[in-house]
C-alpha cells in the first residue's frame, strides 16, 4: 500500500511541475511581443530624455480619462469609445462593440506593433489633435497592462 501511495504523490508532483513549466513557457512566449513593444517605446523615450525612470500607470490613467479639448468636437476623450472603465467593452460611434482595453480582459491586446501604432496614430489625432509621444504611448500601455 505504502509504496503505491508514494509513487502516486511523486507522479502528481511531476505532473504539476511539468504543467507549470509549460504554462510559464507559454506565458513568456505570449507576453514577449507586448514587452517588446513597451521596450521599443522606452528606447525611443530614452533617446530624448536620458533621465527616464520608466512608464507610469498613473500618467497612463490620466491620459485615458482626460478631455484635452484640442481634437475633434465629437470625440473629446479616449473614453468616448473605450468607456470609462478599461475593463468594460466600449462602442464606436458607428455602433460596433469594442473589446475591453484592459489586458486582463482582452489578453490579445497590444501584441501587434503595426496595429498598436495605427490606432495610436488615429485615435490620438482625433482626441488631442496631435500625435501621441512615445512616453504617452508607453504610459497608456502600462496602465492597460496593470488593469
Amino acid at each position: 500500500m505504502k509504496p503505491h501511495a508514494n509513487s502516486f504523490t511523486l507522479s502528481t508532483l511531476a505532473v504539476i511541475i511539468f504543467t507549470s513549466w509549460i504554462l510559464a513557457g507559454a506565458n513568456v512566449a505570449f507576453a514577449s511581443p507586448r514587452q517588446n513593444i513597451l521596450a521599443d517605446y522606452a528606447a525611443r523615450v530614452k533617446i530624448q530624455t536620458p533621465g527616464f525612470e520608466g512608464f507610469s500607470t498613473d500618467r497612463g490613467k490620466k491620459l485615458f480619462l482626460s478631455k484635452p479639448g484640442t481634437g475633434k468636437p465629437d470625440i473629446p476623450s479616449c473614453t468616448t469609445c473605450h468607456s470609462n472603465n478599461p475593463a468594460n467593452p466600449g462602442q464606436t460611434r458607428a455602433g460596433k462593440a469594442i473589446e475591453p482595453m484592459a489586458v486582463s480582459r482582452s489578453p490579445a491586446r497590444y501584441t501587434d506593433f503595426k496595429k498598436v501604432e495605427k490606432w495610436f496614430r488615429r485615435n490620438c489625432k482625433s482626441v488631442t489633435g496631435r500625435i501621441c509621444t512615445s512616453l504617452e504611448k508607453g504610459d497608456f500601455l502600462t496602465f492597460m497592462i496593470n488593469q
Binding site: 475633434k72 465629437d74 470625440i75 495605427k118 496614430r121 488615429r122 485615435n123 489625432k125 482625433s126
Partner: peptide, 8 residues
C-alpha cells in the same frame, strides 16, 4: 466622416 481612418 469626422474620424481619422488613415491606412498604410
Amino acid at each position: 466622416y469626422g474620424e481619422d481612418a488613415s491606412l498604410d
